[in-house]
Design a protein around this nucleic acid. Sequence first.
DNA 1: CGGTGCGCACCCT
DNA 2: AGGGTGCGCACCG
Length: 418
Amino acid sequence: MSESKYRDWILDTIDSLRSRKARPDLERICRMVRRRHGSEPDRTCAELEKLIQEQTVLKVNYKGSISYRNAAKVQRRSRKKDDLTLTTAARRSAVEEASHSDLSNGDSAFGPVDQDEEDLEADTSMAMDTDSNADEEGADESRDGQDGPPLGRTYVDTSVRCAPVRAISAPCSPSGTRPGPGCGPGTGLDCASFQKAGERPSSLPPPSPRALTNNDWAYHSTVCPAERQHPGMQRDKAAMKPATHSATTSPCTLKNTVKKEDGGKAVDSSLSSDQLVPDYAAGLDETRNVSDGRPQALSLPSDNCTLKNKMDVSSFTAAEDSLLNGGKGDEVSVKKEKMSHNLMQWTVADVASYFSAAGFPEQAVAFRTQEIDGKSLLLMQRSDVLTGLSIRLGPALKIYERHVKVLQRTHFLEYEDL
DNA sequence: CGGTGCGCACCCT
DNA sequence: AGGGTGCGCACCG
């Protein structure tokens, strides 16, 4: 309910900002929604993130700053004749094109994509971003926007959740160019809001004009906060306006808050990406993992059911990391092993908590409502998740592909071993 | 001061 | 040429 209400509000706001020729950025959107409907910026931001996930709203990096687009209104005007309008196939191909080749001028150009599930393709976008930036990377960074007039170029965000390493070497840089002043340490999410503040000065100074022109590429919604946290890069600039940060930050702290509770300051450039971008980030990578049968690490209710809700994805990821690094992840690993066995023992509350922690709080309610416990979860089929819970297709697909399926697979694999 | 309207420069088909 | 964007500025309450 509220979801669609928010969707309308947000889309309306975006449209209205656009018609006013004002950049539909996070700050403006939140402000306008609050003015018009009294919604808290935090909430608006959270809803916006959801819409982005569903691709109802597209988050793009245009001319160096983040903008949001009403996906329904962004039609790919490029292809002259093939107007793929509605068919799913069409939509899909549009998305593909968008993420691969052009994404024409600035924004993505997806057709009216309402549902999602296209995330899968999202990652492909990375490929191109890589090259487009490649050159500007170095130069760009060094000369730091002093002269080059900012050219327009857009990056649609698709989840590229930049891995720390990768972030440095390639893609992220452009967008990271202008690190949100706000994204300081541990902050997160939405640098978009800060962008504004720090934008002009540092913004992208495209080194080689033509190269940049405007390729757009996508990067996922939460656009890796990490990308703005590259150690050396613009971080300093961000540091320059700490004050702004706190001021502007208000909106969108939803997830951060949660996260911060457990890992907050600990968030390092390396971990942050995962931590801050739970499901979206999970999106691509997880998707891949899933595809090769590797279970992703996400929060799993602890066996004794002491699920701390707050201990969500981030902490798990963190734990996961330490685990991988041979750190003090013993406990965790033990838990992990147990957990799949215990999946059979998950209570309805455990299941709900799991999905809530995984970034699907609203859908978690549906699981609870339908009284899905561990056993039921193991029995769930794709259609059950997509249609049996009365949740929206987008999240449902993600939930099924990234969680239900994975949990089931993990469970059964381990079961086999025994 | 915040919300609007819009001219104009850019950029992409 | 046609169309999308959004900066920058003026105007309004």
